[in-house]
């Protein structure tokens, strides 16, 4: 017994190293598998509030720039409405305004501020300043002003963690505009503007410069949200599908606010998809 104690004492450093290293591996693996533990993420209240505070300071210095971009966005929306009014023959604008009032719209957008994000790691996340209290749910899609950002992965009362499309675990269902071929968008490069499109069949007639939009097959994003354009088409020997490089048209590293997509018929669509699987 005494010898054993002596042994443990003598090798205590090595044992501590071994045990702690094993704990780390367990944490990493566990964390990669099931990402549900909220304490492990920055949606944790304490860290969230520190991040929110430092973001506030940063926000202050970027106010002008943000105002400009909001103005631009507003202008674009106004433009759309005006164009709609001009082109509609009989007073269709009346109907349009009515639909805006309608609370049974399929998609509703919940705006939220970005309080923290990473862009340069292998698996990137982003934290939003809204959570369960504001009606967010796990699995909802998140859009920026120019395109897709990611999917909500975990929630606390006031914060939400978003799995960015720039994450090794992210798969986004997309299609090629006007050609209806559909595939999965993944991130394999280290460049935050370059993504890879998989599973597009070899017989598809595609060309460089084609536009990539969301397919609308998933319950997270509405159809036809803009993503980017085809940058290069690679052929893999022995494979039936292309490996396509897609260049995103927007920069994910300077987003400061986002819109969460709340899809009203989510449960309905989910049940249908489940039935189909059975």
């Amino acid at each position: 017994m005494r010898n054993l104690l002596y042994l443990i004492f003598r090798f205590s450093a090595f044992l501590a190293f071994l045990v702690l290293e094993l704990i780390c591996f367990y944490l990493i693996v566990n964390y990669n598998k099931s990402q549900g533990e909220i304490w492990a993420h920055s949606s944790n209240l304490f860290v969230g509030s520190i991040n929110a505070r430092s973001q506030k300071v940063e926000d202050f210095f970027e106010l002008n720039q943000k105002n400009d971009s909001l103005l631009l966005e507003n202008a674009r929306l106004l433009e759309t409405i005006l164009n709609f009014r001009m082109t509609s023959e009989n007073n269709a604008f009346q109907d349009f305004e009515e639909t805006l009032q309608d609370s049974t719209l399929d998609y509703q957008l919940i705006p939220a501020n970005v309080v923290s994000k990473t862009i340069h790691l292998r698996n990137n996340y982003l934290t939003l300043s809204k959570g369960k209290k504001d009606g967010l749910k796990v699995g909802m899609g998140v859009l920026g002003k120019n395109g897709v950002i990611g999917i909500i992965k975990s929630l606390s009362d006031n914060y939400a963690t978003v799995l960015l499309i720039l994450n090794g675990q992210s798969r986004t269902s997309v299609k090629i505009l006007n050609k209806e071929y559909h595939g999965n968008l993944v991130w394999e490069s280290s460049d935050p503007r370059l993504m890879n499109l998989k599973d597009v069949p070899r017989h598809a007639n595609i060309s460089k410069g084609d536009t990539i939009v969301t397919s609308g097959y998933s319950i997270s994003y509405p159809a036809n949200v803009h993503l980017g354009t085809i940058d290069a088409i690679n052929y893999i020997k022995g494979s039936n599908s292309y490996d396509i490089d897609v260049r995103l048209d927007y920069d994910l590293s300077n987003i400061s606010y986002a819109y969460v997509v709340a899809f009203q018929k989510k449960e309905e669509k989910e049940t249908v998809v489940e039935l189909q699987d059975e």
Binding site: F17, L20, E21, I23, C24, F25, Y26, L27, I28, Y31, A40, H41, S42, N44, V47, N51, T118, L121, N123, Y125, T161
Partner: peptide, 17 residues
């Protein structure tokens, strides 16, 4: 906790320690 990567940095620091 701040980098949202539980275990990764801890593993590396334990190693150098």
């Amino acid at each position: 906790i701040f980098y949202d990567s539980i275990g990764v940095h801890a593993g590396a620091t334990t190693f150098i320690a």
